[in-house]
Design a protein around this nucleic acid. Structure first.
Lengths: 240, 240
DNA sequence: AAAATATAGTTGTCTATACCATTAATCTTC
DNA sequence: GAAGATTAATGGTATAGACAACTATATTTT
């Protein structure tokens, strides 16, 4: 469960392990976690290492510490509609819909000019181009074109469309996702988009473009999505 | 400077000391802090204690760590193009355009049902209803309908259309603006919107609805805006 | 002169331990 | 039975040290 020889830090492994148990509802809000001393003994690590893992999760608000009592899974934050960057998968789940995906195209190619600009890379940089139709409860919701800088991520598994790309990159590849820049624009469906989304040409679509950066500022991916205007609203909480 | 017998934790004292040096500009953005080992030696504490202080400040964004190099005072957060809540006025200025406004209607009335719901108020609550055409370089950019809970803000001056409402409420009335919730949606211009925006019926428009809250969570205003799809893109930076 | 190597300094991770403050349960005393 | 004291468990703070990973500079080698 915890691999001391992994290149990933132990505290990070513990962190992700806890996160997973909460994600999978194995540990539910209000549940008390094993005490730091127990954790340390179980994993045969120092208590301080356990604390480093727990501290970060507590700062994130996922855990809640009480002196003298213990550490508990925090109650899910009320009013959390898309506070930050989210994937289509997370987005749909938050809306109570079942996300789905149909792969249209999956190729490794050299980046088109506009894409290479967005990715701040040379025009000849190899990128993955992934075209997907995104489904919500089996109905087309968006037509999505993703470009991922393969010079950064290396090889992607072929079954990536079934999983969250973010999850894969963060958990399995160890990349740290940073900020994202998102653009919203109203437009009308062209022939291709109308066909993919099962709507008529000229119907309203919400174009969302996103550039996702790594923590160090390197652009990782560029996504162009066309959402059905009649089905989709994007809601976001903004500070200050 | 650091009092080991103080009831305040040592790491907290160090934290506040660093904060103060930055506040008073004794340490400026870009400056390198003494290394953790130097700090520890100077204060005669353990390096881990110093780290606990620095880690928190780094998480806050006040400091910036670089492995192998050192710890530096972070650059003050630049107000990125639309990182948070912004008014139309600020938005346009950030784009290098001159914002303008044409007042269409300004009334004090009882809230329509939908509006009172958004403002979490009774249906008979009095609201200001302000309809404006928003101009950028004298060209219609958006048609905006604003509802402000007058039970909260009291009386508004009549010449409000020439000024930023936010500025007025914050600086002159002392209200503290909190979060905002914003919804994006693609649609087609109806007759009224097309007329106001000088476009054709059926042209694409970006519908943006915003609810602005005070710091204590009270809804303050509800704004429905229809932006010209051919002229306006909304860009935002989002944290992960 | 350029390239490779060593070196010193930095943050990152981790250990093993110690004591403190708070909490909750148990035991003792009245 | 109620009140107080004890005890065990928890997270909070702190120590002294170790090695790893990374960076910049100085030194040596080619």
């Amino acid at each position: 469960m915890i691999d001391k020889n992994s290149p990933l830090p132990i505290y990070y492994q513990i962190q992700e392990m806890i996160r997973k148990k909460i994600d999978t509802a194995e540990w539910e809000p209000g549940d008390m976690l094993p005490s730091e001393r127990i954790f340390a003994e179980d994993f045969d690590v120092s208590r301080m290492t356990v604390r480093q893992a727990v501290t970060e999760l507590a700062n994130e608000g996922l855990l809640h510490r009480e002196k003298g009592k213990g550490t508990f899974v925090a109650e899910p934050k009320i009013e959390q509609p898309l506070q930050g960057l989210t994937s289509f998968t997370e987005d749909m789940k938050a809306r109570g819909l079942t996300p789905g995906s149909v792969l249209i195209q999956y190729t490794l190619r050299t980046a088109p000019l506009k894409v290479s600009e967005k990715l701040q890379a040379n025009t000849d940089v190899p990128v993955y181009e992934i075209k997907r139709i995104r489904l919500a409860d089996d109905v087309p919701m968006a037509y999505e074109r993703t470009f991922i800088n393969s010079a950064i991520v290396g090889e992607l598994p072929e079954d990536i469309e079934n999983r969250s790309i973010y999850y894969f990159l963060e958990k399995e590849k160890g990349f740290k996702i940073g900020d994202g820049e998102q653009t919203f624009e109203a437009s009308l469906a062209n022939t291709e988009e109308a066909g993919r989304l099962d709507i008529n040409e000229g119907d309203p679509i919400l174009l969302i473009q996103r550039i996702t950066y790594l923590e160090d500022g390197t652009p990782l991916e560029y996504v162009k999505s066309a959402y059905r205007g009649d089905r989709y609203k994007f809601t976001i909480k903004m500070p200050r």
